[in-house]
Write a protein that binds this DNA or RNA. Structure first.
Lengths: 157, 157
DNA sequence: TAGAATGGTCAATGTGGTTGTCCATGTCGA
DNA sequence: TCGACATGGACAACCACATTGACCATTCTA
């Protein structure tokens, strides 16, 4: 089944724009709620750290960046008070990285902001259409949609 | 209308992943077809240059970057043979930037690759659902979806 | 227990963005 | 018409964030 040629870029671009406007709105809310320093990619970092915490090396793997870059990111987030580093009593090599309560707070607020956006989309499109939208997007995206190797992906000029 | 809390991030993330996989596929095709040096953002740059050509300053405005950064990008693309610079006979200040035939070729191939993806999505979802998907995405994205101020937007850690 | 693998850090580097400055050219109004 | 301002472009210094390479401490394993 073929469609009018030359229009294929609109749909992907709309998807990017939808993502972008959602992220921008979330971070505008976060800034208003006491987290003005958070940047779009920090949400990915927090998700990659997870509730259990992790290490810099593992974080780098999840984010698709080098362990050195992950270490620097952790250092920056530590300065901002969003994560704290500790030691692993079972393995003296590992240094754990965990969200602080401030980090957890930002994650909860971010989650709430995303839910508000989803609710608004439901209002605008109707529940059926939103369900269809989700279903269709699941079909055309990879199974492990939570791959976080995003930073730097967009690449260089 | 409210939905299950804590799931709001899935839809935007799926949109990003759909965009990402589409872009990756386009650039894999381009690499196979003689354009291995093109990066995702180059497509945006080419679109911003347009068939008429433009100037570095205007390019910077369209891409949401400084004129200096735009100038450097143009210089890099010139080295790669995708754009050429000329002078404007009506305004000695302006230096025009135009796509070379190689640049136009890459744009055409990129467009064809996007169309192939759209056709595949039509196969996977059905024509009706794809139309609905487009319609719904138009509703939740800004009117001027072609804003190209993407580079660097994702921000810092 | 020696050697390989793992986690972390430091250093040097590269890229692509920024601001600041300057100059040439064009535009417009007193 | 000419002086003030605006615009397009280039150069320099700087910065953020990634990279690779090297190195050390610790743990695992053959």
């Amino acid at each position: 089944m073929s469609s009018e040629p030359g229009t294929g870029f609109e749909l992907p671009l709309r998807m990017l724009m939808a993502f972008r406007t959602a992220i921008d709105e979330v971070h505008a809310d976060l800034a208003r709620e006491g987290h003005p320093d958070l940047r779009p990619m920090h949400g990915f970092v927090f998700q990659a750290i997870g509730p259990q915490g992790t290490t810099a090396v593992e974080l780098g793997r999840r984010l698709g960046i080098s362990k050195q870059a992950a270490g620097k990111t952790v250092e920056a987030l530590e300065r901002l008070g969003y994560v704290e580093r500790g030691t692993d009593p079972w393995d003296a090599r590992r240094k754990t990285v965990r969200l602080t309560s401030r980090g957890a707070d930002s994650l909860a607020r971010s989650s709430a902001a995303f839910d508000r956006i989803r609710d608004r989309w439901t209002d605008e499109l109707g529940a059926d259409r939103l369900r269809a939208l989700e279903e269709d997007l699941r079909k055309i995206t990879p199974e492990d949609f939570f791959r976080l190797d995003i930073p730097g992906w967009f690449g260089s000029a």
